[in-house]
Simulated assay, not measured.
Amino acid sequence: MKKRYRGYSSRKQNNDPNSVRAKKHLGQHFLTDENIAAKIADTLSYEGYSKTLEIGPGMGVLTKYLLKKDTEVHVIEIDTESVAYLGENYPDLEGAIHEQDFLKYDLSKIFGEAPFAVIGNFPYNISTQIVFKVLAQRDRIPEFSGMFQKEVAQRICENKGSKAYGILSVLTKAFYETEYLFTVPPSVFNPPPKVDSGVLRLKRKENYSLPCDEALFFRIVKMAFQQRRKTLRNSLKSMNLPDNLREDAIFGQRPEQLSTDEFIELTLKIQPYAISDQQ
Results as ranks from 00 to 15, higher is better:
2 K>V: 09
4 R>E: 09
6 R>H: 14
9 S>H: 08
14 N>D: 09
17 P>W: 15
20 V>Y: 01
25 H>G: 01
28 Q>P: 06
33 D>C: 07
35 N>V: 15
41 A>W: 08
45 S>K: 09
48 G>V: 06
50 S>R: 07
51 K>H: 14
52 T>C: 05
54 E>P: 04
54 E>G: 13
62 L>I: 07
72 E>R: 10
79 D>C: 05
81 E>N: 09
85 Y>A: 08
90 Y>T: 12
91 P>W: 07
95 G>W: 01
104 K>A: 13
105 Y>L: 02
107 L>C: 05
110 I>Y: 15
120 G>P: 08
123 P>K: 05
125 N>V: 00
128 T>L: 02
132 F>A: 06
147 M>R: 10
154 Q>T: 04
164 A>L: 14
171 L>C: 02
173 K>V: 02
174 A>N: 11
178 T>M: 00
181 L>I: 11
183 T>Y: 00
188 V>R: 07
189 F>E: 11
193 P>F: 10
207 N>I: 15
209 S>V: 06
211 P>T: 07
211 P>N: 01
226 Q>P: 07
234 N>Q: 12
236 L>H: 07
237 K>I: 03
242 P>F: 12
247 E>V: 05
249 A>C: 09
252 G>D: 13
254 R>K: 02
255 P>K: 00
257 Q>Y: 04
258 L>C: 04
260 T>E: 03
263 F>G: 04
266 L>R: 08
268 L>P: 01
268 L>A: 13
269 K>G: 09
277 D>N: 13
